Computed example of a mutant assay.
Amino acid sequence: MFPRFFARRAMGAVVTLCGVTLVGCSSDAPIEDVTWQITNIYQQGYPSDVPDDVAVAPRIIFGYTSVVGDTGCAPFHAHIEYTTDDGTKVEPLSATKARFSDVRVDDVRQGCIGREAFVHDSLVSLLPHEFSIDRQPGKLLLTQTGPVVDAPALLLISEQS
């Protein structure tokens, strides 16, 4: 009885350790069903940091066909399509690009002014586009695709890492 008990516990520890390594360190970690905080919005000529003192931090949660989130001033949801560089539709883990469409933003909360309003407006205008996906441990960099030299981008940090 004791050897089996310890073997199960050891196996559970290895599985747990591997799970943490895969999710926390791998660039192949899933992006879906994870809450991502939007920490930077890169746009030419504007500061990139999302202020730390916002009442609601901008967030996004990716699903297989939709996303939900908050701009910091209003909840939003949209459709999303994951593809490879050649346009083949794939699951989120295999995607190198993501296209947001049918972005719907709820009413802006009262008191959304200043930098919070700027972040909100920036996200609302940036989201309905196609982005390349650059995965880093605990981070995603979404850069708008197209012929723009300094393309707008969003830096997201996993809240689970």
Rank of each mutant, 00 (worst) to 15 (best):
D102R: 02
I38Y: 00
S125F: 06
G114P: 09
D106N: 11
E81D: 12
V34M: 07
T39G: 09
T96Y: 05
V124E: 09
Q43K: 07
E116Y: 01
Q144V: 14
P128I: 14
A95M: 07
S132R: 06
D28N: 14
V68Y: 05
S101F: 05
Y82A: 07
V105K: 01
P58K: 02
T83M: 01
R99Y: 04
G114I: 11
I31M: 13
C25M: 15
E81N: 11
A74M: 02
F62A: 06
V54Y: 03
S66G: 11
P128K: 08
I31V: 14
T83S: 10
A95F: 05
I61K: 06
V23N: 13
S101E: 10
E32Q: 12
R99Q: 13
Q43R: 13
V90Y: 01
V54F: 04
W36C: 11
T65F: 09
S101P: 07
N40Q: 15
P137D: 05
I113F: 04
Q44H: 08
T96D: 12
L141Q: 08
S122Y: 02
I38N: 00
Q144P: 04
K89L: 15
L126T: 08
K139C: 11
D134A: 10
H79P: 05
D106E: 14
G146W: 03
V34H: 06
K139L: 15
R99F: 07
T96V: 13
E32I: 14
Q37F: 11
R115G: 07
V105G: 02
L126R: 00
G146F: 05
D107L: 03
N40Y: 12
G146L: 08
G72L: 03
S125K: 09
D121W: 00
Q43A: 09
V67H: 04
I61T: 14
D102L: 03
V108Y: 00
T71D: 01
L123I: 09
L127V: 10
P137T: 09
L127C: 05
D70K: 01
V50D: 04
D49W: 05
A117S: 09
S122R: 08
I113L: 11
T35K: 06
I113R: 01
V108M: 04
D52K: 03
T71A: 01
H79C: 11
L141G: 00
F76E: 12
G146M: 07
G146D: 08
T88D: 11
Q43W: 02
T96N: 07
F131G: 06
D106W: 01
T84Q: 11
H77W: 10
P128G: 12
L22E: 08
L126D: 06
G111V: 04
V67Q: 05
L126W: 02
Y46I: 12
D107W: 02
D52Q: 10
D70L: 09
L93V: 15
